[in-house]
Amino acid sequence: MDRGVQIRVERAARIFRMGDIEVPALVDADLDIRFGEFITILGPSGSGKSTLLNLIGGMDRPTSGHVWHLEEDLAALSDRELTRYRRAHVGFIFQFYNLIPTLTAYENVQAATELAERPLDPGEALELVGLAERCDHFPAQLSGGEQQRVSIARALAKRPTLLLADEPTGALDLPTARTVLALLQALNRERGLSILLITHNPAIASIADRVVRIVSGRVTESLENESPLAANEVTW
């Protein structure tokens, strides 16, 4: 199957300045994401995974190099254009869910759908993640797994073309993590959503089409996974 390139990261570097010291978080990274691909980025903490994800998600700009979304170089976009890019194309899933505590599950999803042009109905999105009946609950009244599913519903509801997940199961126990991963896998296979998932857990990486390794800010390898594991077979 020959799929077009959705995101191309080209010799992208990100250097943080802390006082007088320059800390290179990412060094000359190259990466292509094709439409419908499920990629995991594997690396220890502090290796630059999140930095790469932020660049791809339009939350940050590279110090040098390019991040292409189709024909558009994200590195050259203004804040306003980056906001438009995030709004139209990207769904985010965070390790700690980042739900707005004063909004219900339904309203949290609505916070995203209000911005999108042809979003899913928030109730429909919650149904997709199996939480239709909990839509009136506040985050504090939901379990960790449930909160993460709300956060997935929120990311999904905008109908993004790219889903970015930063350690989505990092705060969950194994059975809960499996349901979340299964959900992501299904979204990828059934809806053709491109997914970029960050993890430091090699077991999780095995469910992806491709595994990219990052060590000390450098992309060290990119391996195609011929037979991805089903999410419910994952174990650690």
């Binding site: 306003r80 906001t83 985010f92």
Partner: peptide
């Protein structure tokens, strides 16, 4: 941060 990530403008 989340609001901005979701796509809310400044």
């Amino acid at each position: 941060g989340t609001l901005k990530a979701i796509g809310y403008s400044d």
